[in-house]
Design a protein around this nucleic acid. Structure first.
Lengths: 109, 109
DNA sequence: CAACATTATCGTAATATTGCAATATTAAAA
DNA sequence: TTTTAATATTGCAATATTACGATAATGTTG
């Protein structure tokens, strides 16, 4: 045991969970927020901005990319990362839908 | 090593990450979706609905509760769990804000 | 009270994640 | 072509997560 039993859940549940999980780490939140703050793509300076070693950041970027949250373009010997708006919209919609469904509800708690 | 270096990030970043992380597992997504589907609180039947053992579900419920995503009311010998709408709204706002900030942006990727 | 139902906790095994030093890769610059 | 800069990969140690059997705790019902 120890591994998540993905087989038991639907594809939708698994895929949204993967996306959300990718954001469930302060370093990755910080990366996303930095991408927003600089209002452009990251081309190299992120390692200086975050208090983590370069391999660690590289790993976090990879995870964000695997989850579809950021896109990366090779640009010479630098790599240009930016947020994938579609992914953010998916998440926004997901929570928006939940909110909407909760509105017409009489919770007993 | 191995532990997340929370000290290096802001309180906001850490707290949103904790919340998001709590949802980053298909079982916990399934729990939330089930809570929405039944359109009321869970009072006991969730163990029969999910393909996981009772202690595992109890643990997932605990995590959701710790992260503030659900509330639990004791109700006789059953416990009544329901979604905390405020938490969902926080998440919706978080992604809504990101989306808004991305709109006025010329991404290079 | 005894039996039952419901949920929580403990203990533990299996697996995953986090972080970094060392090293590799790749492309630009000198 | 050597050097430099930027990023990725590998390997590994530390820690966290996931899952569940066993058991405890607590309230309900007969």
């Amino acid at each position: 045991m120890g591994a998540t039993k993905s087989q038991h859940f639907t594809d939708k549940q698994n895929s949204i969970a993967v996306m959300i999980k990718a954001l469930g780490h302060p370093a990755r939140i910080a990366i996303i927020e930095y991408l927003i703050k600089v209002d452009s793509c990251i081309c190299g300076d992120i390692v200086n901005e975050l208090p983590l070693a370069q391999p660690t950041i590289s790993q976090h970027l990879k995870e964000l990319k695997n989850a579809g949250l950021i896109k990366g373009n090779i640009n010479g010997n630098a790599i240009c990362y930016c947020i994938d708006e579609k992914a953010i919209q998916k998440l926004q919609n997901y929570f928006g839908n939940i909110s909407k469904k909760l509105e017409n509800k009489n919770n007993c708690c």
